[in-house]
């Protein structure tokens, strides 16, 4: 994931604007309550990469009311969340090297944010994806659906040839 982040930065640095269109960059916020501001994210099939920024707009420290943004297949959420609660804050409430985690930010406190960039190569249209916060118990409320839209062939071709 760090590699991807670095790669993404490089692309931006080279001015390859458009590789990550606005429609492929998302921002989700959370605050001092256990709640995300959005309950669905729609990712166009034309996005090869997605940049997700989670911003903590509250005041609480990470150890009190820290949040993150974790993406997984919906069927894997309960297993990842339970293992994450046991992993503790120092591991960002995430089981180490869990292949079921598609993308995740670190846990942040009030005023902080973190961005994760991930490839859509392993996302499948029609698959049921859930994003959630893996701070202990937060996932019972802090969660939403990520929908990966199928790309029309022309659009995909247009994007890749850019």
């Amino acid at each position: 994931m760090q590699k991807q982040q670095a790669g993404f930065a490089l692309i931006l640095l080279l001015g390859a604007g458009g590789a990550l269109a606005d429609e492929c960059a998302f921002q989700v916020t959370g605050g001092d309550a256990i709640r995300f501001d959005q309950r669905t994210l729609e990712v166009p099939g034309s996005c090869l990469q997605v940049a997700l920024t989670f911003r903590h707009v509250g005041h609480s420290a990470a150890r009190v009311m820290g949040h993150n943004w974790v993406l997984a297949k919906s069927k894997d959420v309960s297993a990842i969340a339970n293992a994450g609660a046991a992993a503790g804050l120092e591991r960002n409430y995430q089981p180490t090297n869990d292949p079921r985690i598609i993308a995740a930010t670190k846990v942040v406190g009030g005023g902080e944010s973190d961005t994760v960039t991930f490839s859509t190569a392993e996302l499948r249209p029609g698959e049921d994806y859930t994003y959630f916060c893996s701070s202990p118990g937060h996932w019972s409320v802090m969660k939403g659906k990520l929908v990966f839209r199928a790309a029309s062939k022309e659009k995909l071709a247009a994007t890749t040839s850019r």
Partner: peptide
């Protein structure tokens, strides 16, 4: 405790 059962999280 937490664990897994058939790929699902359990408490």
């Amino acid at each position: 405790r937490t664990g897994q059962l058939g790929g699902k999280g359990i408490v």
